[in-house]
Amino acid sequence: MGDTLLEIQNLHARAGDAQILNGIDLTIRPGEVHAIMGPNGSGKSTLAGVLAGRPGYTVTDGAVRYEEKNLLELEAEERAREGIFLAFQYPVEIPGVTNNYFLKASVNAIREHRGEESLDAIDFLSLAKEKMAIVEMPKDLMGRSVNEGFSGGEKKRNEVLQMLLLEPKLAILDETDSGLDIDALRVVANGVNALRDENRSMLVITHYQRLLDYIVPDHVHVLAEGRIQRSGGKELAHELEEKGYSWLEEGASA
């Protein structure tokens, strides 16, 4: 169907030698926000990594289609250029490369792919300023090495800034709310909401229902042991918050 952005079917994947994903089915349509919750180690980041093209995983079964393409055949950079964005759970520090240089290279790589003219230093700076204001990012972070010495919250803001600059079609946020204070959480959520529209989809991985008060999801899924154990509306997140994951297991065994 033309109105499916991402379709994951029976996805099985290994990380190194360990079997992590054991048959994931998930369909995301344009404009939808899906939340994924689940215990530590259940495979959430693995799923995000497989979708973004992180090396080190082997897909052992199943398929992923993205905009009519076989996603798993694309290199990581091709996926990014085609509109997939992963906000890293642990953003990477890159010594010696300024944030400014990195972001400009990234924006221009994607613009080039879209057939748009690349931005010069001045145009990029004004674009960056506009987006930095949304995430209330201090200016000096642009002149520093990528994520080097950034606080946890600054790293997460930097991820959201990148998302705002790259305007992806599918944003995968892996625990972008973890480690944020209340103000930062609001700022990050504002950033995400600023991008929300009927054509843009999001996959939000989180441990906390609190984030979902700000970024209200259309669907909530619970991942455990590499499988989606349950799906529902936003009320499922409330239920999990109250009862924890053990309630799910009881439900499953009952």
């Binding site: 973004a52 093209g53 992180r54 090396p55 290199e75 990581a76 950079e77 996926r79 990014a80 250029r81 964005f85 992963l86 890293f88 953003p91 990477v92 520090e93 890159i94 010594p95 010696g96 490369v97 240089y101 990195f102 290279a105 990234s106 790589a109 994607i110 792919h113 090495s145 990148q162 790259l166």
Partner: peptide, 22 residues
């Protein structure tokens, strides 16, 4: 770090060059 750069659309070759320069 290489994956981080590639996940932002920067090609593998350019990403390596960027890390080397860094």
């Amino acid at each position: 770090a290489l994956f981080y750069l590639r996940a932002r659309g920067i090609g593998a070759r350019e990403a390596r060059a960027l890390l080397t320069r860094g």
